[in-house]
Design a protein around this nucleic acid. Structure first.
Lengths: 180, 180
DNA sequence: GAGCTGACTTAGGAAAACCAAAGCCAGCTA
DNA sequence: TAGCTGGCTTTGGTTTTCCTAAGTCAGCTC
């Protein structure tokens, strides 16, 4: 019952939460705007310029982010200026920070020469990393992750092509072979 | 020197590692294919059908993933069949699993009614979560993250519009207001 | 009360991404 | 050696995403 991966064709990813998350944040611009929000950007023009997108795109995406509940638009006022609106991360939006952190961590390792910013623990100064951890408190490396059925699991209607002898990712040759 | 966010306009995100990562995995299809790879999918047709994309798209993206070094294409042979190619995660591709895990965690919380699969620690059975942790071993909540300059930080050429009194994300009103 | 500025919107168009349907090819099986 | 199957590629068309350039509008400042 627990060997889901061995019967990969008996269940579908129709209601996959990764796909559902990607429906909200599945494009580059949206994630760049969220990056800016997490770095303290609040004004429309700053969002557009710092994320490197045009104003029409910024307007469209910010509107969508507010509609999706990731940002909140609220009026603010600077002395001697008129009332304006600013965009602030909601708790729902803030909960996407691990996604940004994971992307940054991977990008630091594989996609840039040198990181432009570092992320540290404010209280102790030590670098912050994204980790997988189980509720029992263990660090969980990628090869110790097990996939189990959840309450929303949907069976597939058509029994698809007979599968390869399925293996979870961690038993693949890719995890034991010598690195290139 | 450490209050980067207060001088957000003095540095640019031109070489941002998040943007660089998004250049590689910044579209929905790519991440869905990586999801499938992490769930043990190895054959072309299975990638296309399970990720829900057409064959031409699957072919293009898989080719790109191999070119980017996230997947490795290698011949395999089942008894009584001819030699075929399969796609396996490389270590570089496997290091993106925290991104998928973070997306799944967010999606489970906000984007689906009930998760279709659960992820557990193989050794102890406890649910696995994505966490931010510092090298000193502390759990780091979002409001204790500090942003520091890295070696690749680029200054901006044009001093942009005078900024709002900048605040790191964790001091925003969004973190202290009552939730809706 | 004219001008400026921040915050957008509108218009028009280019590029990227995606799809369905059909075709191609290698190499087993019969 | 004819047919089947997995693994693609080609064709043609639609949708999405993004751009530049220009216009709008509210409400301070002068």
């Amino acid at each position: 019952m627990t060997d889901l991966l061995a019967r990969r064709d008996t269940w579908s990813t129709a209601n996959c939460s990764i796909a559902a998350a990607l429906d909200v944040v599945g494009n580059r611009t949206t994630l760049l705007l969220l990056r800016e929000a997490s770095l303290g950007t609040r004004r429309f023009d700053d969002f557009a310029h710092r994320a490197g997108v045009s104003e029409p795109v910024a307007a469209t995406r910010l509107k969508q982010l507010v509609a999706d509940g990731l940002l909140e638009r609220r009026p603010y006022r600077q002395p001697g200026q008129r009332t304006r609106d600013e965009y602030l991360l909601t708790p729902k939006g803030r909960d996407l920070l691990p996604v940004l952190a994971a992307l940054r961590q991977w990008g630091d390792t594989y996609a840039v020469d040198e990181p432009s910013i570092r992320v540290a623990h404010r209280d102790c100064g030590a670098p912050v990393q994204v980790r997988l951890r189980c509720d029992a408190g263990h660090d969980v490396p990628a090869d110790e992750v097990a996939v189990l059925p959840g309450p929303g699991l949907l069976p597939t209607t058509p029994p698809a092509t007979p599968d390869l002898p399925a293996q979870p990712c961690h038993t693949h040759p890719c995890h034991t072979r010598s690195e290139t």
